[in-house]
């Protein structure tokens, strides 16, 4: 059975104005991701990793070329439609956990569902399910400032996963974590990838992350240098 293609980038180029000249962040990128992939964009700073995440996350549009995410042409989406796409189908995890400090863990996770107008009972059940995935049910009513770094990033994962997105985009998710917590987070994400078939796409240059990836796309100067699929690679511990 063919695996469903959920992202297709065709000849994607992204240029930014830089004074009187232009900086080309991505050059003619051709790339596809399929459902359930656990992939990473790897490369030095300025190689175009974040720009690529932005376009796949419907946060930016290509200057030329075509980006189709879940069947929707990113360039043609209105602000409202791209917000709707993010709200329903895309999850984001940032290097810094970016939890809202005045809300509890529960409320931080619930926030994404409030935007979907989910009924209260269903919302409560879904939030506790997401907290259970990351093992934080007991901390549901704690404020973010009472959490450790690892716990904070697990809340961020729960917040991104609670709406069961098709695609989860993570920008350097382990950069602020120690090795033990980084592995714990990555194991959690891999487990969710296996169980929910969510496509995970990382931007990283963390060796620990690379140890978990099933596909690594090497970027340099806005171009794909190497797109390698890693088969049966044992997980690093």
């Amino acid at each position: 059975m063919a695996i469903e293609e959920i992202i297709r980038l065709s000849e994607v180029t992204k240029r930014y104005p830089m004074g009187e000249t232009e900086f080309t962040a991505l050059k003619n990128i051709n790339l596809a991701f399929h459902k359930g992939e656990f992939a990473g964009l790897v490369g030095p700073s300025g190689s175009g990793k974040t720009t690529l995440l932005n376009i796949m996350g419907s946060l930016d549009v290509p200057t030329t070329g075509e980006a189709v995410v879940l069947g929707q042409h990113i360039s043609k989406l209105s602000h409202k439609a791209s917000a709707e796409l993010r709200n329903r189908h895309l999850g984001f995890i940032f290097q810094v956990f970016n939890l809202l400090p005045v809300y509890t863990v529960y409320e931080n996770v619930e926030f994404a569902l409030l935007l979907q107008n989910m009924p209260a009972q269903e919302r409560k059940k879904t939030v506790y399910e997401a907290l259970d995935w990351v093992g934080l049910t007991a901390l549901a009513h704690k404020k973010p400032d009472k959490l450790s770094g690892g716990e904070g990033q697990r809340v961020a994962i729960a917040r991104a996963m609670v709406k069961r997105p098709a695609i989860l985009l993570a920008d350097e998710p382990t950069a602020n974590l120690d090795a033990a917590n980084a592995h714990l987070i990555l194991q959690t994400m891999k487990r969710l990838n296996d169980e929910l078939k969510t496509t995970f796409i990382f931007s990283t240059h963390d060796e620990k992350v690379m140890g978990y990836l099933g596909r690594i796309i090497h970027l340099r100067d806005g171009c794909i240098e190497l797109d390698e699929t890693i088969k049966n690679k044992p997980l690093q511990r």
């Binding site: 602000h79 409202k80 917000a83 993010r86 709200n87 984001f92 970016n98 926030f111 935007l115 917040r159």
Partner: peptide, 12 residues
């Protein structure tokens, strides 16, 4: 920023 990333409309 977080709210925009989570998919909240600017108008909302």
């Amino acid at each position: 920023g977080i709210r925009l990333a989570l998919g909240e409309f600017k108008g909302h």
